[in-house]
Simulated scan of single mutants.
Amino acid sequence: MANKFQDKVVVVTGGTSGIGLATAKAFVAEGASVFITGRRQDALDAAVKAIGGRVTGVRGDMSQLGDIDRLYDAVQQRHAQIDVLFANAGGGEMAPLGAISEEHYEKTFATNVKGVLFTVQKALPLLKDGASVILTSSTTSISGTPAFSVYSATKAAIRNFARNWILDLKDRHIRVNAVSPGVTDTAGLNELFGGGEQAEGTKDYLASLIPAGRVGQPEEIAKAVLFLASDDASFVNGVELFVDGGQAQI
């Protein structure tokens, strides 16, 4: 343990499973005090138990502005500032053009775009000057995927938030970067692919398209997030860091 984030205050939205959970664990292991969010209390309680150490769970849906306010109220009750914000909460479902409903569009954009926008904006009074903000984008921000256009559009928006916000926040020296995972072995991905043998078959096929020859693990994405959040990345600003085994580069 290097304790790179000793006594730092870190917020991880969508921290109850997958990449968010792995990242919260990694920050706690490095000495941080971590706040995670999740929409379901049972999942939140399980995540807090799995993470251990200095972690606080705050139930909330980040597409709801009132829930975002409650998150930062909880942080402010214990700490004067936030050092790292990982705006990770998000999700999506498959829907081909011709079958996209208004509900599908509004739900996806509310979670992935509206939620990230106001998660960051409402954090500004608490963010320390020189803080690090990391946004979860996706390799879909630059590549096409059948039946995934709405989700992909939201992730392209996230990537462009990083480009613009570094200008808005330059006087405070707050860095904003996007991490773009490729195919990553999470419960959410399994659900998206239909679960069970169907999901495993889809992942095996996708692994054959990745130069690294396999899908990623949440812990590998977490390591990239911790790099972007750390002083090791002090001159890294506004980038989209692909963590995808090379798939986006071919």
Rank of each mutant, 00 (worst) to 15 (best):
A32R: 10
F27W: 09
P146S: 10
V28I: 02
T23V: 07
T139G: 09
H173M: 11
L21F: 11
I51H: 07
V176M: 12
A95W: 00
R175C: 05
E106R: 15
N190M: 13
W165E: 04
L97G: 03
K122Q: 13
A212D: 09
V11A: 04
S17I: 01
Q6V: 05
S208P: 04
V243Y: 06
G196F: 04
G201C: 01
A233H: 12
L71V: 10
K8H: 14
F193C: 10
F5L: 12
T140L: 08
M62D: 01
L117K: 14
T140A: 15
G182H: 06
K203A: 03
G246E: 10
A224Y: 01
E106K: 14
K223Y: 07
S137F: 03
E103C: 01
T37S: 11
R172L: 05
H173W: 10
L241F: 11
E93F: 10
L124H: 04
L206V: 04
Q77F: 00
P218G: 07
F86C: 00
S234Q: 14
Q81I: 00
R159A: 11
V116I: 14
D129F: 04
L126H: 13
G38C: 03
K25F: 00
V243I: 11
Y205S: 13
L135R: 04
A95P: 02
Q121D: 06
W165M: 15
V116M: 13
E219A: 14
L135A: 02
F161S: 00
S234C: 12
R54M: 04
V176I: 13
G31Y: 05
L226G: 12
K122S: 05
V236W: 14
L241K: 13
Q198L: 12
V116F: 03
V84P: 04
V120L: 13
D232Q: 15
K170E: 05
K107V: 08
V150L: 01
A229R: 13
D42P: 01
T23N: 08
G144L: 04
L124Y: 06
D232F: 06
S180L: 15
D185S: 14
V12F: 03
V58H: 07
G91F: 09
V179H: 08
V113F: 03
A22N: 11
T145H: 14
T13S: 15
G52L: 02
V9C: 13
G92I: 02
L209W: 07
T16V: 08
G52T: 02
L228C: 11
T139F: 01
F27A: 06
G188T: 02
Q217D: 12
K122E: 06
D42K: 14
A222F: 03
E220Q: 13
T37F: 05
S234L: 10
A162D: 09
Y205G: 10
T23W: 07
N88S: 11
A131R: 02
G246M: 12
A89P: 07
S230D: 11
I134E: 01
A26V: 05
V243K: 09
D45R: 04
L97D: 02
T136F: 00
F148N: 13
G115N: 09
Q64M: 10
